[in-house]
Amino acid sequence: MGGVSLDNLRTLSWVVPTVLLLAAGLVSWRTLHWSAVGSVLLFAALNVAAGIYILNHLGDPRWSAGGEPPLSAPSFSETPMVGQFLEPLDAALNAVVGQVNAFLAFQQGLSVAMEFLAISGWALLAAFPLALLAVIISYINAQRRAADFKKYRATVDLLQEELAELKRQISAGNFVPAALPAGNQVRDARAEPQGVTPPGA
């Protein structure tokens, strides 16, 4: 991560959870609420990781981008006539200025790290109501599925009861299919002359 700038860290902490949320929504939109919770937690984790990384590299000049420029000590060693006698003063001033620059870099890095950690804290705070909402949505979906299954089960039980009743009627001989007319009672209209009334009609 040595080549990652401060702006890249901020961008990655937003882009990665967003891309994963969109991908999870495309794969399974029914669990999008849980994907949203996971994305928020991932966002918080990435910000914590960035904050810890910055704390471990507080003196890195990347965190002072846009801040105060480093201080520089004036040089007295180039003063005519007495410059060689002022070289110890230059060394002392450079040491002091170096300590001040290190403190400023530490302060700027600490400020940036606290910014990432604060964002992570807000994300975790937002994750609690979001997780509660996801639990409620999951409960409602589970109740709906249970009601649908209960209705389906009731329909299956009713059909099984009707089938069992039909089997009992067939076994007891109470099931009588619709009777067809006997063969000798069926008249052939083609064999009868037109206009003649058959006997017994």
Score class of each variant (00 low, 15 high):
residue 176 V to T: 08
residue 50 A to Q: 02
residue 176 V to L: 11
residue 131 A to W: 03
residue 42 L to R: 10
residue 183 G to Y: 11
residue 101 N to Y: 04
residue 43 F to T: 01
residue 169 Q to S: 13
residue 71 L to A: 14
residue 124 L to Q: 05
residue 36 A to F: 12
residue 88 P to N: 15
residue 135 V to T: 01
residue 163 L to P: 02
residue 50 A to I: 02
residue 16 V to E: 05
residue 74 P to V: 15
residue 118 A to Q: 04
residue 86 L to D: 03
residue 13 S to G: 04
residue 74 P to K: 09
residue 62 R to A: 15
residue 167 K to D: 15
residue 162 E to L: 12
residue 121 G to Q: 04
residue 71 L to Y: 13
residue 173 G to F: 06
residue 30 R to G: 10
residue 107 Q to L: 08
residue 197 T to K: 10
residue 103 F to G: 04
residue 130 L to A: 01
residue 38 G to D: 06
residue 122 W to I: 05
residue 137 I to Y: 04
residue 95 A to M: 02
residue 47 N to V: 02
residue 119 I to L: 06
residue 17 P to H: 03
residue 149 F to W: 07
residue 36 A to M: 13
residue 95 A to C: 00
residue 63 W to D: 01
residue 31 T to Q: 14
residue 96 V to W: 04
residue 120 S to W: 03
residue 32 L to T: 06
residue 162 E to I: 13
residue 97 V to T: 15
residue 117 L to F: 10
residue 115 E to D: 08
residue 179 A to F: 06
residue 75 S to Y: 05
residue 19 V to G: 01
residue 123 A to K: 00
residue 170 I to M: 13
residue 102 A to R: 10
residue 126 A to D: 07
residue 164 A to N: 11
residue 143 Q to L: 10
residue 149 F to N: 11
residue 186 V to M: 13
residue 103 F to K: 09
residue 192 E to W: 07
residue 83 G to V: 10
residue 65 A to Y: 10
residue 156 V to R: 07
residue 162 E to N: 15
residue 151 K to W: 04
residue 94 N to P: 01
residue 144 R to I: 04
residue 70 P to W: 08
residue 87 E to R: 14
residue 168 R to Y: 06
residue 189 A to H: 01
residue 91 A to F: 05
residue 174 N to H: 08
residue 149 F to Y: 07
residue 174 N to A: 10
residue 15 V to S: 09
residue 35 S to P: 01
residue 23 A to P: 03
residue 151 K to I: 09
residue 28 S to D: 15
residue 188 D to H: 11
residue 33 H to V: 09
residue 187 R to I: 12
residue 111 S to H: 09
residue 142 A to Q: 09
residue 180 L to A: 12
residue 98 G to P: 00
residue 22 L to N: 05
residue 130 L to Y: 00
residue 102 A to G: 13
residue 61 P to Y: 08
residue 37 V to L: 08
residue 70 P to Y: 13
residue 24 A to S: 14
residue 45 A to E: 04
residue 45 A to Q: 04
residue 55 L to F: 14
residue 196 V to T: 12
residue 105 A to N: 08
residue 79 T to V: 12
residue 64 S to C: 15
residue 66 G to M: 13
residue 146 A to K: 05
residue 165 E to W: 02
residue 75 S to T: 15
residue 44 A to G: 11
residue 89 L to C: 11
residue 11 T to I: 14
residue 151 K to E: 15
residue 98 G to K: 05
residue 124 L to S: 05
residue 168 R to W: 03
residue 71 L to Q: 15
residue 33 H to P: 02
residue 121 G to H: 03
residue 12 L to Q: 11
residue 28 S to Q: 12
residue 106 F to W: 06
residue 1 M to W: 14
residue 20 L to F: 06
residue 93 L to F: 06
residue 100 V to T: 12
residue 35 S to K: 02
residue 195 G to Y: 01
residue 48 V to K: 00
residue 42 L to K: 06
residue 116 F to Q: 00
residue 147 A to S: 09
residue 71 L to M: 12
residue 101 N to P: 00
residue 40 V to C: 09
residue 110 L to A: 08
residue 2 G to Y: 06
residue 127 A to V: 11
residue 86 L to P: 02
residue 85 F to V: 11
residue 153 R to H: 09
residue 37 V to K: 00
residue 175 F to Y: 15
residue 13 S to M: 07
residue 4 V to H: 14
residue 49 A to H: 07
residue 115 E to L: 05
residue 164 A to P: 00
residue 144 R to D: 05
residue 39 S to Q: 07
